[in-house]
Design a binder for these strands. Structure first.
Length: 217
DNA sequence: AAGAGTAGCAACCGCATCCTT
DNA sequence: GAAGGATGCGGTTGCTACTCT
């Protein structure tokens, strides 16, 4: 299920990524971070365009990316999010840690679309009470809205909670190879360092690893 | 067994938006 | 504020594997 690798007129390779290319890109980004997607292929020794590298990293090589079957919970969430936001795949992906917008989009077109149509037909035939009740998505987003309203307070709390983090620069320098693809980092008030690794700190601080936002518990 | 049709998904393309100068 | 470059996003394509006839 892959595209044959070809070389275009500019000498840039297209199509399937080989293992060797994956290794090169992964090694480069883990070492230097993704400071400029256009220049990375050159420095990493790849005959690919920056866009292609970015996509490959975000969808496959990035640590934490889940592959394989979607759970029922994930399916439900996708369906509800799609009902609410339409084809806003990146937005939907933010609610599913480890899933990429591309994967969700594919999953929707191959599996959920059919299911969704069946559901809609069923709803039209028999008025589905779920259509009128508050969905999980609505509830989550309502909480998020409340969270953003009290953002200042939250940030203060966040500052307190992770005031033990290393300096901001050190912190994101260490994390940058893992956080590539996200153009912004959260405004985190970091102060004195500790012996904890950044990953460990993230795990313990209720900060969403992928978005940098505080998690709703 | 073989050819046709379909499903699944990685990857590309082009436009939109953001960021920097 | 304008322009140009970088990045993000969603639609679409192309290829292989699988299923059906």
């Amino acid at each position: 299920m892959v595209r044959r690798a070809i070389v275009d007129k500019n000498g840039l390779k297209k199509g399937t990524w080989s293992r060797e290319e994956d290794d090169k890109l992964r090694a480069y980004i883990q070492r230097y971070g993704c400071w400029n997607w256009r220049k990375i292929p050159k420095f990493a020794g790849l005959s690919r365009c920056g866009k292609s590298c970015r996509l490959r990293w975000l969808n496959y090589l990035r640590p934490g990316v889940k592959h394989g079957n979607f759970s029922e919970e994930e399916d439900d969430l996708i369906i509800q999010m799609h009902r609410k936001h339409g084809n806003k795949w990146s937005r939907i992906a933010k609610k599913l840690p480890g899933r990429t917008d591309n994967e969700i989009k594919n999953h929707w077109h191959t599996n959920l679309k059919k299911h969704h149509k069946q559901m809609q037909t069923a709803v039209q035939e028999k008025d589905d009470p779920r259509e009128n009740s508050e969905s999980v998505v609505d509830h989550i987003e309502m909480l998020e809205t409340e969270n953003s309203v009290t953002n200042a307070t939250s940030q203060e709390k966040m500052g307190e909670r992770i005031s033990c983090l290393p300096s901001q620069d050190t912190f994101w320098e260490e994390l940058s190879p893992l956080c590539c693809g996200y153009s912004s980092v959260p405004e985190v008030n970091c102060t004195a360092g500790t012996g904890l690794t950044s990953m460990k700190i993230l795990e313990e601080s209720n900060v969403d690893f992928w978005t940098g936002e505080g998690l709703i518990l």
